[in-house]
Design a protein around this nucleic acid. Structure first.
Length: 426
RNA sequence: GUGGGUGUAGUUCAGCUGGUUAGAGCAUCAGUUUGUGGCACUGAAAGUCGCCGGUUCGAAUCCGGUCACCCACCCCA
């Protein structure tokens, strides 16, 4: 009697053997791109003290207010499954004094994030991110470098059809002035605003710019622009970022309404956006966060970085028709014709595997014909059938499964490896 | 948290206005004179028709609830 099935928790996804090669590809491109740009990997725990995210991500954000997986552990500590990676990176770096051992500190990670959201296209409760962070560099070349890394990463994956949107949200000084101007403007148009906007007006007027409600959009059109309120330094920094991007030929669209959802951002914010994968079209997003390290107890240290959702990147690749090859197929399948041969196949297969060849054999007790069918199905490049004849003669036929051609080969691991490894066309 | 759509073999789906043994393609497994794959042919296995309740002589089909998935809002990668 079968037990009732247990399904994966809502908003989580298994990566099955048949598609895991796609993940391997994305991860290897991420690692290689990071390496070329001079970033080292950092790993950190899956859960942290809840306090870290309250301070690091920001108390007013939706993530902290209603999306965290928070629980008390058996020792009475408040623990949270990380909803994003940046706070952990900063915590770990401060804790181990990385910033005192020389700047800049450049690190990347590939890690799962957890947010209690309602799942939809491109949005999960557990999702994975390739993230990159750079600390210590205050100048605009650093911003451009991070964006160039993002751009290289996406193009190497075969993603061409995203738009890079760019904005500067200034420093706390100029943002304060802008916030006041914004508040004043929206107060004057109160009657025309939707309810959520009215609600936010007092707390975070920046967010109103993002509203998709038709009537709010109308009002947004003539709202004051942040670019008019940037202080001298911020304006120069932003101009520097744009000039640096121009010089390397990376195209961008200035989007004065682009506001990121995490409280820690300052100055540069950017997103690579797609319109091909549903409403959640942001494939990669990031920016500068010059106040975060200090907020988390370190010396004032500028920082910047981005996060890119691997599931979304995969969706985008799919949408753009990027073709990947599953390279997990075996090099060789060795079929046994009788009991005697089955005994001989075991040691042979082990010897070949020790030499680096991916070899499979029958574990299901099938006949030769069925073994060949199976070898074909799993995509083995070569097959060998061994029976009493072959063992007596010490010779086997090795067959190229693509062409169907066969070739004689001595029955010893070295000869077989030589044929399979050199991928000699038979 | 709010709203819309969808739940039938492993999978993609069919099943007309409720009628008795719930079907097909693909996939799986076995075989086509027993030592050779892809094609073809034969056959087999596989479903408490998401779950619970209601209406009815009778429910995959109608009604209610619930859960899950998909999509959108909110927000975000």
């Amino acid at each position: 009697m079968a037990q009732q099935k247990i399904t994966a928790p809502r908003g989580t996804k298994d990566v099955l053997p048949s598609e895991v090669y796609k993940w391997h590809f994305v991860e290897s491109v991420a690692r290689e791109t990071a390496r070329r740009f001079g970033f080292s990997e950092i790993r950190f725990p899956t859960f942290e003290h809840t306090e870290l995210f309250h301070r690091g991500v920001g108390d007013t954000t939706d993530i902290v207010q209603k999306e965290m997986y928070t629980f008390e552990d058996r020792g009475g500590r408040s623990i949270t499954l990380r909803p994003e990676g940046t706070a952990s990176v900063v915590r770990a770096s401060v804790e181990s004094s990385l910033f005192r051992e020389g700047l800049p500190v450049k690190v990347y990670y590939i890690a799962a994030n957890f947010r209690y959201e309602k799942p939809q296209a491109g949005r999960l409760r557990e999702h994975h991110q390739f993230g990159v962070e750079c600390f210590g560099a205050a100048g605009p070349e650093a911003d451009a470098d991070i964006i160039a890394l993002a751009y290289t990463y996406l193009s190497t994956l075969g993603i061409k059809k995203t738009e890079l949107q760019l904005n500067s949200i200034g420093c706390p000084e100029c943002r304060k002035k802008y916030n006041e101007a914004l508040k004043a403007y929206f107060e004057a148009h109160r009657d025309g605003l939707c309810e959520t906007c009215l609600d936010r007006l007092g707390r975070n007027p920046l967010r109103l710019l993002d509203c998709k409600e038709e009537k709010c959009r109308e009002i947004n059109k003539d709202a004051p622009l942040l670019s008019d309120y940037l202080c001298q330094e911020c304006a120069e920094h932003f101009a520097g970022v744009k000039a640096a991007l121009d010089s390397v030929g990376i195209k961008y669209t200035e989007n004065p309404k682009l506001v990121r959802g995490l409280d820690y951002y300052t100055r540069t914010v950017f997103e690579f956006v797609s319109n091909a994968i549903g409403a959640q079209g942001t494939v990669l997003a990031g920016g500068r966060y010059d106040g975060l390290v200090e907020e988390l107890g370190g010396q004032p240290t500028p920082g910047l970085g981005f996060g890119s959702g691997i599931e979304r990147v995969l969706l985008q690749m799919e949408a753009e028709g990027v073709q990947l090859e599953d390279n997990s197929k075996p090099d060789l399948f060795i079929a046994a014709a009788d009991e005697e041969a089955r005994k001989a196949v075991g040691p042979l297969v082990l010897a070949l595997r020790a030499s680096g060849v991916a070899v499979e054999r029958d574990l299901m007790g099938r006949g030769v014909r069925a073994q060949m069918k199976y070898a074909s199905k799993i995509g083995a490049a070569y097959t060998i059938v061994i029976g009493t004849d072959e063992i007596e003669k010490g010779q086997v036929k090795i067959r190229d499964m693509e062409t169907g051609k066969e070739r004689e080969c001595p029955l010893d691991p070295y000869s077989i490896v030589a044929l399979v490894d050199n991928t000699i066309k038979i």
